[in-house]
Design a protein around this nucleic acid. Structure first.
Length: 423
RNA sequence: GGAGAGGUGCCUGAGUGGCCGAAAGGAACAGUUUGCUAAACUGUCGUACGCCCAAAAGUGUACCGGGGGUUCGAAUCCCCCCCUCUCCGCCA
């Protein structure tokens, strides 16, 4: 959610910046400004009337104490009208505030000035490509066939237990998952991230805080009995730890990481996108989250991006980094880099990470602030990135490392898997 | 799931109708003192939205778990909800 004070002071700037996201903010901003005017004048009247009433109440008390009963009763009678006015003004205030909130949540975050214009993923800017796709022979097969061949992932039984998109990993498949999780968590810790194991169900306030609610309600699994959502990413619980907090400036930056399963309904997906491990309803992911002062959040974003690139390098996967164009960015993000690995048998780039700076968009929703000495509290910047999402990493590892003997495990991972080949 | 206790500021904790945005202590911060550490003393020490304003200062209102009610006036009385703790039950 954009800050109201910012919108009020710079309406034109907000409109022009949101144009980069192909979002026409003018009508909403006009309404916001109009409602805000009404709200302020209503508040002025309300506060003034309340002040009158408070003053009279105090006098009534004093009159009673002085035994001036009649005068007190007289003054009492005069409060009736004020109280009526107050009731009406309070209703007006509440209405304005609800309308204002309803409009404000419609506005996406303003993109950073470096965000390229564009509408589709094709217009994302490739800022870096690294590694080379392996030369696979004629017999190369996609990961879902490798999974079957070596009996390490069972999609069909997942369908039986739950439904499509809930695979079973077994044997070396399960061990590979566990190895990757440990590898990623160890790396994150070495990079200074504090490991968190959060709940994987969250309440509505948490969903609102990071921006999943209200607009992406249909993307999350919902437990109706307890009104809880299954997390789509560890970002939600790990960032919401700091909801409604005023951190001391000395406790920043916050660097957290965590492994969780992630649950996504992925309504509307189909075709080759959902084949094999390409898109699942449940998957494992290690997430990194940072909370920063505004002045250094973009340095942090670069640092996170380079950290993730380092992981891909260690896994010896060919990858590229995209700077997302306005049209492909998420609602809440100000700047996003996607990391894609090349999955050689499918001959496709697969997104395995997305790292974003949300600036104050989430912290304004969450009321996540920090404070330096006696200064006013200031909204912090929040950032997060996948480091990494497992399924597509597994897909690329299987496909790219297949040879006549089986699937070779990259060197860095062998201490974790404790086996060198899947065969 | 059943029974009871309780939710007050960063923390502990007082406050049962006006003198309460809230005692006291602790923590923290600033200063004085001090060879250093410690201690002592003094001061500061919530948030939001308005108004005023270049800003600071000032000022109005609201907030004592959340929502409603009674009253001229509510942290305090009444109703509903939520949460936490303890005991019992169940259980990895």
């Amino acid at each position: 959610m954009l800050e109201l004070a910012y919108i009020r002071r710079n309406p034109e700037e907000v409109i022009s910046r949101l144009a980069t996201k192909n979002f026409d903010a003018k009508p909403i901003i006009d309404e916001i400004l109009a409602i805000d005017d009404k709200r302020r004048s209503a508040q002025k009247s309300l506060d003034d009337t309340l002040a009158q009433l408070n003053k009279a109440s105090k006098e009534i008390g004093e009159l009673y104490k002085a035994g001036k009963r009649e005068e007190a009763d007289q003054l009492k009678a005069s409060t009736t009208q004020w109280k009526q006015d107050i009731t009406a003004l309070e209703a007006e205030m509440k209405k304005n505030e609800i309308e204002l909130q309803a409009k404000a949540v419609l506005l996406p975050n303003t993109p950073h000035s470096s965000v390229p214009k564009g509408k589709t993923p094709e217009e994302n800017e490739i800022i870096h490509t690294e590694g080379t796709a392996p030369e696979l022979g004629e017999n190369a097969i996609p990961h879902w066939e490798l999974a079957k061949k070596y009996d390490i992932i069972d999609f069909e039984t997942g369908v039986k237990l739950t439904g499509a998109g809930f695979p079973i990993y077994k044997g070396k498949g399960a061990r590979l998952q566990r190895a990757l999780i440990n590898f990623f968590l160890d790396k994150a810790r070495d990079a200074g991230y504090l490991e968190i194991e959060p709940p994987i169900l969250i309440n509505e306030d948490s969903g609102f805080g990071t921006g999943q609610l209200p607009d992406k309600e249909g993307q999350m699994y919902f437990v109706n009995e307890d009104k809880l959502y299954l997390i789509p990413t560890a970002e939600v619980p790990i960032t919401n730890i700091y909801r409604d907090m005023i951190l001391d400036a000395s406790s920043l930056p916050v660097k957290n990481c965590g492994y969780t399963p992630c649950f996504r309904r992925e309504a509307g997906s189909y075709g080759k996108d959902v084949r094999g491990l390409n898109r699942l309803h449940q998957f494992d992911k290690v997430e990194i989250v940072q909370i920063r002062i505004p002045e250094d959040s973009y340095v942090a974003l670069e640092e996170m991006r380079e950290y993730i690139a380092g992981l891909l390098r260690e896994l010896q996967l060919p990858f590229r980094i995209l700077k997302l164009c306005g049209g492909d960015m998420s609602f809440a993000s100000a700047l996003t880099f996607d990391m894609e690995v090349f999955s050689a048998a499918q001959k496709r780039w697969l997104e395995v990470s997305s790292v974003s700076n949300f600036e104050t968009f989430q912290s304004n929703r969450m009321k996540l602030r920090y404070k330096k000495d006696k200064d006013k509290p200031v909204l912090a910047h929040t950032l997060n990135g996948s480091a990494l999402a497992l399924p597509r990493i597994v897909a690329a590892l299987l496909e790219n490392n297949q040879d006549s003997k089986g699937v070779r495990i990259p060197e860095m991972l062998v201490p974790y898997t404790k086996f060198e080949y899947i065969n």
